[in-house]
Simulated assay, not measured.
Amino acid sequence: MNKIPLTLLLCVCCSSAQAAPVFECTDRAGRTLYTQEGGSRCTPARLGRQTVYSSALPAAPAKAEAAVETAPNNQADDTATARNAVERARAALEAGRQVRYGNERNYAKYLERIGGLEQQLKDAEAALEAAASAGR
């Protein structure tokens, strides 16, 4: 059996299927339709980049301990660094609450992840309190 022509034919068919243009058409009622067949009332659609979804797990959020680095000589810099860490932890918590990942079908897994983000926020706030009290 000669597999090379079959493989080549399969590659050509697949690549041509991906390259099919999408047209934005308007019907007589004024509705917008999207199709791969152009016509007199059709223009090439500008859909932007295609979005690709992955089943891979998301990257772990940055740890709050990264904000508690070696203390600089200037206490104001230390307080500002701690304040930035609190803001980042707060933003990570809000972003985490808005998303429920596919591996979190069990609600307890979602709560476990959110609990970790809340703990990071508490740790960052404690570091800010420590930096603020050391600066006084």
Rank of each mutant, 00 (worst) to 15 (best):
D78C: 03
G102K: 05
G135K: 15
L10Y: 13
M1C: 12
R46P: 13
G38Y: 05
G135M: 13
G30Q: 04
E65R: 04
L10F: 07
E65W: 02
F23C: 09
V99F: 01
A17E: 07
C42A: 10
E94T: 14
V12I: 05
V68L: 06
A19L: 12
A64E: 00
S133A: 05
N84K: 13
L10C: 06
A76V: 13
P5W: 04
P58V: 03
R90H: 09
C14E: 03
A82I: 14
A85R: 04
K3D: 13
Q120A: 15
T51W: 01
A126I: 06
D123Y: 10
N73Q: 04
Y110K: 06
A92P: 13
G115S: 14
S133K: 14
A66W: 07
T79I: 04
C11G: 12
T32F: 05
A19V: 09
S16C: 02
G39F: 00
L47P: 02
R88F: 01
P44I: 07
R41H: 08
A82H: 02
I4F: 00
C13P: 10
A131F: 05
T79R: 13
R46H: 11
N73R: 01
N103E: 08
G39M: 00
G135T: 15
L128G: 02
A108K: 04
G96K: 10
E118Y: 01
T70E: 04
L6R: 09
A95G: 11
E129H: 04
L111W: 01
D77C: 12
L33C: 13
E69N: 09
A76I: 12
G96D: 06
A91E: 15
A17Q: 07
R31N: 03
S55A: 14
L6Q: 07
A126H: 05
E65D: 14
A89P: 15
